[in-house]
Nucleic acid binder design. Structure first.
Length: 222
DNA sequence: CCCTGATTCGC
DNA sequence: GCGAATCAGG
């Protein structure tokens, strides 16, 4: 299968969305993940956190007898930063309750790291980017991020409980993905309406209705 | 083993 | 340009 414009564009999109090469290969069909990776690189798509890559900065030869090779010029391969979040989720600093003054955390130094955006729009961490919890749990008040306009008033993952319907609406990663959130049918994780969808009695064949077409093109065949 | 992305290299 | 083979970390 050739790399048509459509397929290239799809590859670009999915790659930038953070899908793995395998997923993209499945999605495109008729290509291996190697083909996807190779094409992505040829297209100049931004590299992503690779398990193998942190290879460079290490081993300069301990060997003394190294030939006086003309050392490669310091290639400044600073790629342009990945598109920043369009929505500056502006968490206004809450007037922290008159709790005892918390010892302020050490100032986080600015970190020019290469990042990419995951499917949910979250910022992926690069490898080796974690900070060891040197200070055990700074007594900082946690504040929920202001929900984006799209999910305002919707039930988010963080609000799930045993009392409200966990039926997902939309798809994870989409901006308006949320949960049903209406009171549950007691003893079930869903509300009455969605229980009726989730738990269906086996009907005689003649009474069954064919399932409606799935909105997203059907389950993945894998 | 499975997964991942990066790189190489013959075509 | 393409992608299988290979590498190497999780």
């Amino acid at each position: 299968m050739a790399w048509t414009d459509e397929r290239i564009e799809l590859l670009r999109k999915l790659w930038e969305q953070g899908m793995t090469a395998s997923q993209i290969a499945d999605e495109l069909g008729d290509v291996s993940r190697n083909a996807v990776i190779g094409k992505a690189h040829r297209l100049g798509l931004q590299a992503r956190p690779s398990p193998v890559r942190p290879h460079e900065a290490a081993a300069e030869p301990v060997v003394v007898a190294a030939a006086p090779e003309p050392v490669a010029e310091p290639v400044a391969m600073v790629e342009e930063p990945v598109a920043p979040e369009p929505e500056p989720v502006e968490v206004e600093e809450p007037v922290v309750a008159p709790v005892q003054a918390a010892p302020v955390a050490p100032p986080p130094p600015p970190q020019p790291m290469v990042r990419s955006i995951g499917p949910g729009g979250f910022v992926r961490s690069g490898p080796g980017e974690q900070q060891p919890p040197s200070t055990p749990a700074p007594p900082r008040r946690l504040v929920p991020a202001k929900p984006s306009a799209e999910i305002a008033g919707k039930t988010s993952l963080l609000e799930l409980s045993d009392k409200i319907c966990k039926w997902p609406l939309g798809h994870p990663g989409e901006p308006d993905f949320h949960f049903c959130g209406t009171p549950v049918n007691p003893g079930f994780p869903y509300c009455l309406e969605h229980c009726s969808v989730a738990y269906q009695a086996q009907l005689p064949r003649r009474d069954r209705r064919p399932p409606p077409p799935l909105p997203y093109g059907g389950p993945r065949v894998r």
